[in-house]
């Protein structure tokens, strides 16, 4: 008795060839198909990097603006009050004012040259004779 479900050797061979052909086709087709998504992916990665860079730049700008503001936002009066409090522990207000006046006079000493004119050559040239 012959089993009806059994596959004939010739048919099996045909099936094998068919499979090998289709797998080759799949491989080459897949390869072609996969290049388009890969290009899209590269584009998306590029776009993503640019977006991240933009966000970083904006963040840096925000951080720097807030830190700049902070550096100028301190209250000089609080500092003055704190200094006065320290001074008052030892000196009266009038004594402190006299001390400050002495400091002010020391700063006004005419022999002290604050920010003098910088020592520069005002005659920089190529062909004229140098006076230095």
């Amino acid at each position: 008795m012959k089993d009806e479900n059994s596959i004939k050797p010739s048919a099996l061979k045909q099936q094998e060839t068919a499979f090998s052909v289709s797998s080759d086709q799949w491989w080459t087709e897949g390869k072609v198909k996969s290049t388009t998504p890969k290009k899209n992916q590269a584009f998306l990665i590029k776009f993503g990097i640019v977006v991240i860079l933009m966000v970083i730049i904006i963040l840096i700008a925000l951080i720097s603006s807030t830190t700049n503001k902070k550096s100028t936002d301190h209250d000089p009066f609080k500092m003055d009050l704190a200094q006065e409090e320290v001074g008052q522990q030892e000196l009266t207000l009038l004594q402190q004012q006299i001390k400050d006046l002495r400091q002010q006079l020391n700063d006004a000493d005419p022999t002290i040259k604050d920010s003098p004119f910088p020592n520069l050559d005002l005659e920089i040239t190529i062909d004229q004779p140098q006076k230095r």
Partner: peptide
């Protein structure tokens, strides 16, 4: 450049 030096 020489003329600029004179101008300065």
């Amino acid at each position: 450049v020489n003329n600029l030096a004179i101008e300065f």
